[in-house]
């Protein structure tokens, strides 16, 4: 049987700061067109894991490969072509237009002295269009709502043309309608063949969006695998330290309370 090279693969991974492991024993695999949800309480190391996968901080132990290539041997620009990042929120005091922000996604493909040209602008507009916010292209991001800004950041990741995207709590600060919008955008990316890893506080959202789940808290990884098998009442009770009930609705959806 042919073995497909995963977009991201990690073995025996330990992540942390300054040589001290926050969490160890992470086994992780992301394939094209799949959504992997990271679930866990605050301080479990989700953001640290993301920063490690992006090569922003070195792993404490273990190996990471992007498209089968060891992360440690890739340059910044090469990493950016495999893996794009959607931060929790847009952090700039300047009134960039949405299009300017999305254009930045082209940086990895441009030489140091290049500026984005017509091809890059077209790709950026296409990304905005994919996310249904083409009409916001020339709006200043400082005037957009939190949900719209999140969609702009996802469009930027899309314009980066990477096979995989990590999203750090993309819906943490959003209201209901915007959570739904961003959730649909995530499923849309997966349908287009992109692999997505996202972290979430909400098991209901994770069950709705994810194909796979990775459950982790301060003590380590509790489970990793398909949502249906890993997100059991028992595992979630262990994960959060409070009793969690699981129900399956008539539509087949998992609900937790």
């Amino acid at each position: 049987m042919e073995r497909v090279t995963p977009l991201i693969e990690a073995h025996g991974l330990a992540v942390g700061h300054r040589g001290k492991a926050l969490i160890a024993g992470i086994e992780l695999r992301l394939d094209a067109g799949r959504v992997l949800c990271l679930l866990g309480p605050n301080g479990a190391g989700k953001t640290t894991l993301f920063r490690t996968l992006l090569g922003l901080i070195p792993p404490i132990a273990g190996e990471i490969a992007l498209d089968g290539r060891p992360l440690a041997r890739l340059t910044r620009a090469r990493i950016a072509r495999h893996l794009a990042h959607v931060p929790q929120a847009l952090a700039t005091p300047f009134a960039f237009s949405a299009l300017d922000i999305v254009l930045m996604g082209a940086a990895a493909g441009l030489g140091p002295f290049d500026r984005p040209g017509k091809a890059e602008a077209e790709r950026a507009m296409a990304a905005l269009d994919t996310l249904g916010i083409a009409d916001l292209a020339h709006s200043e991001v400082t005037r957009l709502s939190g949900g719209q800004r999140q969609l702009v950041l996802i469009a930027r990741a899309l314009a980066q043309d990477a096979g995989a995207i990590v999203m750090d709590e993309p819906t943490a600060s959003l209201d209901f309608a915007n959570r739904i919008r961003v959730g649909r955008a995530v499923r849309g990316l997966a349908r287009a063949g992109i692999g997505v890893i996202l972290s979430s506080h909400d098991p209901n959202q994770a069950a709705a969006l994810g194909d796979d789940a990775l459950l982790m808290n301060r003590h380590g990884v509790i489970a990793c695998g398909p949502v249906d098998e890993t997100m059991t009442a028992g595992n979630l009770t262990r994960l959060y330290g409070i009793r969690v009930r699981r129900e399956q609705g008539s539509d087949g959806r998992l609900r937790f309370s």
């Binding site: 920063r51 910044r76 950016a80 990042h85 931060p87 952090a91 980066q160």
Partner: peptide, 10 residues
């Protein structure tokens, strides 16, 4: 955009 974001963009 900040160091981490700029680095993640290559």
């Amino acid at each position: 955009m900040g160091d981490d974001e700029a680095r993640a963009m290559g």
